[in-house]
């Protein structure tokens, strides 16, 4: 029962954070919520009894990919609404 509740909460958090990645206009916020998405995904994979995948997802998805995104955001210039589109 308690495992079911935890799984439902994790899956809802996954959908919510994936929606937030799409929703945020600020790239840094989107990158951070992508890190949250990766962390929740690794938790879900751990609940499904695949600790190998969980370790890989936690370190690569939540650690390295977020760092790559943040470095790339720092390297590029911000385009405001008036310039773009």
């Amino acid at each position: 029962m308690i495992g079911m509740v935890i799984q439902v909460l994790t899956l809802s958090g996954l959908i919510l954070s994936a929606g937030l990645v799409w929703y945020f206009r600020d790239l840094l916020s989107a990158a951070i919520s992508f890190g949250v998405f990766s962390f929740l995904l690794s938790m879900e994979v751990l609940f499904l009894q695949a600790p190998d995948v969980a370790i890989a997802e936690a370190s690569i998805g939540a650690g390295l990919t977020t760092a790559v995104f943040i470095i790339a955001i720092r390297a590029t210039q911000k385009v405001t609404e008036a310039d773009g589109e």
Partner: peptide, 16 residues
């Protein structure tokens, strides 16, 4: 659980 790929990624995360 784990292996070369996962452990290497964890060490790389420490450097990052």
């Amino acid at each position: 659980p784990g292996g070369g790929f996962q452990g290497g990624a964890v060490i790389a995360t420490a450097f990052v």
